[in-house]
Amino acid sequence: MNVDTPAFEFEHVSKYYGRHVGLNDVSLSIRRGALVGLLGPNGAGKTTAIRILTCYMPPSSGVVRVCGNDVLTHTRVAQRCMGYLPENCPLYHDMRVMEYLRWMCELRGIGGSDIEKAIFNVAEPCGIMPWRSRLIRELSKGYRQRVGLAAAMLHEPEILVLDEPTVGLDPIQVQQFRALLSRLKERHTLLISSHVLSEIEMLCDTVVIIHQGRVVAVGAPEALKADSTRHYTLECVSTRNLPVLLPGLLNRVEAVTLDGFEEDGRRCIIRITGHGADPRRALARLFTEAGIELIDLHAERISLEDVFIDHIRGCAREEGMIPMASDPDKRGAEHA
């Protein structure tokens, strides 16, 4: 396979369940070695996308390629390139860990002495060696997850697809699991679907936000944050005519809206949302010119969660699902 070939790509992929749209014209290309986080609210189409990618179900239209292989025409080859840990980590609870891993090796076409080698290669990093003789049903949720992950990695796949891998784990298990994923990042292209945004932010170098079957944002977390809406807090000495002056001042700055205004005796705290370039320099100049004494002007720290909510709201607003009453502009105006 050519090194430049994307690890996987979606080309105008749609999927319909009855009249419900699962995926709507999704196009996406992920380079090899990336650690991709798939974000989206419930029912956004994350699992659908993963199931199409893992050849569990075919797309209604469009083309999906895994390591350059079309999932419809070269299904087995595509499946050999991937390891998959489904949501809730389904396992055969009546089997023992080693028995299950051995069986999965045979299922993946690994035979003879390679079986023990393959199991050792995955069991050690996943930390399941001490539990290898246990029945799977006797393991904790975290260790079951590790067994599932080990089974997905047995054949050393190019791509690892993990659907909600940390759901149901306690905080310590989540931390351990995260550490494990960080180590795996060096050897595999990882696609993780998750609700936990902090986790994605911490682990992934590429984030795909999916909503109502459509990809609404793709990129590195930092780039997404940079492109996203930011909030600013401006603190100044209170003057009598400040509430009157403020709308006029803000109108002179490009792409900002007033979020809130609080007066606390001698000090005023003004919250502003910026929709474009950084407005702080312009704001400082205007306030100084107006004779208002600035105490502090800083940008709020933005998280991926903000980016995510921002995109989801943006989509909802486009479709008219969020009423205009909740628009921050209006709230600011009312306050004013």
Partner: peptide, 13 residues
């Protein structure tokens, strides 16, 4: 019911 069918269906079988 247990979802293990997904494991089988996504293996090269």
């Amino acid at each position: 019911h247990n979802g293990t069918f997904e494991v089988l269906a996504t293996a090269p079988l």
